[in-house]
Amino acid sequence: MSARNSDSWTLRVRQAMDRHLPMDHLLPDRQPYYVGSWVYVFGVITIAALAWVIVSGVVLSFFGPQWWHDSSVGRFFNSLHFWSVQLFFIFMVLHLWGQYFMAGWRNGRAATWMIGVVIFGISILTAFTGYLSQQNFDAQFIALNAKDAMNGAGIGAFFNVLNFGQMYGLHVMLLPIGVTFLVVAHIVMVRARGVVKPIDPEGARP
């Protein structure tokens, strides 16, 4: 690297990427022997479910509430969105159990674990605003009951669950962007360091 080129931020970023995230880490074709377990599949299924959530959500946002309530195709995509979310949460929790019991935060992976915790929290908020955006009696019931909790927590003034526009905007724009961005960061961090080693890889304790 010449002195002239070291001033280039693109060069510095590229070199940092080469150091921390080489392509054989980002798109590996081989994995450690201990990755041969179904427990490691939970995270991938969670990502697949998230992809379906996003695809079905984009379709729903194109056509709107009248369509997803009244037409058979709309109800199909509404159900696809709902059940993808159920699978997303179920497999996210199974992934959480697996990582908890293998202490996935070891050896410099604490930030990866914490980003996963934040994804879990934002996902709950996204699902909550989704329930409020259904445009049916269920959504009204949830909003009318939740408003007291929000006011009791002191956030009702700027997080108004009775305000459909606010809830829908958060649900289809800000919160999904947050979840997607953090999921990408989570995956990149996992790929940069690799999967955590088992606590007792040889199975031999003294």
């Binding site: 590996p28 081989r30 994995q31 450690p32 022997y33 990755v35 041969g36 377990s37 179904w38 427990v39 599949v41 939970f42 199974l94 159990w97 697996g98 360091r193 690799g194 999967v195 955590v196 080693k197």
Partner: peptide, 20 residues
């Protein structure tokens, strides 16, 4: 979760010994 812990994984015997 219990099934995932005990069910055999396909091609597990051919897994590479790549260390993380």
């Amino acid at each position: 979760f219990a099934i995932a812990l005990v069910a055999p994984f396909p091609n597990h015997g051919e897994a590479d010994d790549v260390s993380a």
